[in-house]
Design a protein around this nucleic acid. Sequence first.
RNA 1: GGGCGGGUAGCGAAGUGGUCAACCGCGGCAGACUGUAAAUCUGCUCUCUCCGAGUUCGGGGGUUCGAAUCCCUCCCCGCCCA
Length: 395
Amino acid sequence: MDNKTLLERGVADIIVRKELEKKLESGKKLRIKLGIDPTGSDLHIGHGVVLKKMRQFQDAGHQAILLIGDYTARIGDPTGKSETRVMLTEEEIKKNMKDYIDQASKILDADKLEIRYNSEWFEKMTMADVLNLVAKKTISQILQREDFKNRFKNEQDISTAEILYPIMQGYDSVMLEADVELGGTDQLFNMLVGRDLQKAYESKTIQDVMTVPILEGLDGVEKMSKSLNNYIGLTESATEIFGKTMSTPDELIIKYFELATDIPAGEIEADKELMANGENPRNFKVKLAKKLVALYHDEAAAEKAEQDFINQFQKKEVPDDIPEKKLKESNWSVIDLITETGLTSSKSEARRMVEQGGVKVDGVKIADIGDKIDLSEEKLIQVGKRKFLKCSTQD
RNA sequence: GGGCGGGUAGCGAAGUGGUCAACCGCGGCAGACUGUAAAUCUGCUCUCUCCGAGUUCGGGGGUUCGAAUCCCUCCCCGCCCA
């Protein structure tokens, strides 16, 4: 991993770039911090951006540190606005972190990770220590953060706990002696507090801050996130990853190439050129989809996912790995059958589906909501474009 | 502590006694089309034994032939003053 790629690929900003260059040139094994929230979520390729950057540092021989904010999570994150987040127990945090690391290992070299919990130091602090810490920053400094600034201006509330968050996060950097902190651009402010605190505590190193761009989700507008359901999960099936990629807007292709794959920068430029000259963006989206599947599964899965996609959506053929279900009864009305098997969530929905012509049995469209289905022989049920199920009776 | 405003389907947001299962937008789903699960267009979007019926509009109680709409009470949220 060359330093140029390290400093440029998928990087939004570096503060201070010159300092970081110097550190890299010194040949020292740098300590790279990435803070994570142990609230337990499925990782998606948006998280993948920063994880890839971390992996690059690992490959360049540096020490990757995952800082788990277990202490802060136990207090509860105040940014969730109205809902107070439930405090997490130690066991929950442990489990969440195991899941996290399992998923992140698809990108990171898990054997070389240093994993730290911030309860390690926060738990031991006395009130005097806390006062000493908060005395290092002023309210007006903290209020510089854009969302605080806006809320303050608009007379919305800012909880005291929120004020403490950046300070606590910064203190983590002091304790870890981080040389570099990685994070999304939205984390810039908090990470800079780390620099200030390291100076205030006269740390032997002042971390440089590297931000990575926020990846838009499948809608092409909002940040990729689970709650908006516009994400591609790292652990999703090849079919899902492929299909979801194909549903992204064309404008996102290049950005995804840059941030979510390892395709060399030159090749990306060339593809961009081709697209600008009128080549069908779909072809590049296919390339992207295959890359992503290959990354999180393997090459063979990528080939297969492409074939399946062509068959299912372009040729409208039936996929070949359809789940099967065995039922006790053999005599069903369509409505009951597709509801019972979970293909639709209610009978009303089932009726709508049939009325809209979205239900097929053995390839034949069901025309009437009163139709019966005999399962004494296996039947292939299709609801909409994507839901398939083979149904038969129990032996 | 005082004053004011507000809590409506996944979200946003109308509606202030009957024609309200509730306008509209987003999201979601289906169909058509296609270069894709893109874009566009059309339709659907609480549930049920879909003829019709049953439960909904922060919780509970009440007034009324009839309430999301009026009254009481409780809970929650926001703003202002202290």
